[in-house]
């Protein structure tokens, strides 16, 4: 009588384990399939020229995407300048002072903003910056990416600050340290690695955004000077090249995708390392 339910339990366990394991393997498989496919197709077009030269004129082969790589870095720099301070301070507010109704509203608004499709945020940047200036620009693209970064930075900062045990806060308060110094010198340093990891992940996320750039930064076959000219960026170049009718462009699109995904992966790994070192230190 006892063996039966035991066998049944083991069978149920095996089925559940099998299903979750299969799902995990599928996830991992898809990721590696994408990486391998992109690497296989993109590696052949990767050469020194790709990183140092401008796109070749239409009809000629060769050239590179140097302007798109620099353009993407410029856009990420501007996005960080907007998204990190606003998101970080917003997250600190929510974690430390946002207990009441205001906190609820801010948290809710941030979640809604996180759910807004990135193309809509592109339209906002288009309306607010491109139309009045009558000019597509790095500025508009960077602002759009910065806005997309804000809610993820807010929420990851908030969550990581909340992980700091309240008894650490109380220890500082009980020493006669005032509230803002407690937050700045005790709570934030305790959570700093995790907060940085969250920032890097949100940066990795916006690095691949394409839609909001289509009508803000647009694209450019030449170098973009300053912040007020249209600029090339890797995601938009990949899109443009991939739908063009030239084989050489297709190869470069693959290479561009490879560079982009390597950047994103690198940032992700950096973020993970930060978190795990924190975990082992404590």
């Amino acid at each position: 009588m006892r063996a039966r339910p035991y066998a049944l339990r083991k069978a149920t366990n095996a089925v559940a384990l099998g299903l979750t394991g299969a799902a995990a393997a599928l996830t991992l498989g898809i990721l590696f399939a994408i990486l391998a496919y992109i690497a296989a197709n993109g590696a052949s077009a990767l050469n020194w020229d790709f990183f140092t030269k401008l796109p070749a004129p239409v009809g000629e082969t060769g050239g590179g995407l140097a302007n798109a790589i620099v353009g993407t870095l410029k856009l990420l720099l501007l996005a960080s300048a907007i998204g990190i301070p606003v998101g970080f301070l917003g997250g600190v507010y929510l974690a430390e002072f946002g207990h009441g109704r205001t906190g609820f509203v801010v948290r809710y608004a941030s979640d809604v903003l996180n759910g807004v499709p990135s193309i809509v945020i592109g339209i906002v940047a288009y309306t607010l910056i491109v139309l009045p200036m009558k000019q597509f620009s790095s500025l508009a693209g960077g602002v759009a990416l910065g806005i997309i970064m804000i809610p993820t930075v807010v929420r990851s900062t908030e969550e990581l600050l909340k992980l700091v045990p309240s008894n650490v806060r109380e220890a500082a308060l009980a020493l006669g340290v005032n509230e803002w110094k407690t937050v700045l010198f005790v709570v934030i340093p305790t959570a700093l690695r995790g907060v940085l990891a969250g920032v890097l992940l949100s940066l990795a996320r916006v690095a691949g955004e394409t839609a909001p750039l289509l009508f803000t930064a647009l694209s450019n076959r030449y170098w973009s000077h300053g912040w007020l000219e249209p600029t090339a960026s890797l995601p938009v170049m990949v899109y443009t090249y991939a739908i063009a009718p030239y084989d050489d462009w297709h190869r470069q699109a693959w290479a561009g995708a490879l560079v982009l995904i390597t950047m994103v992966l690198g940032v992700n790994i950096l973020a993970r390392l930060g978190v795990s070192r924190r975990a082992s230190a404590s």
Partner: peptide, 12 residues
């Protein structure tokens, strides 16, 4: 001054 139930040195 106050000493708490659980030891709570500042981790950072």
């Amino acid at each position: 001054g106050m000493v708490f139930q659980k030891p709570n040195p500042f981790p950072a």
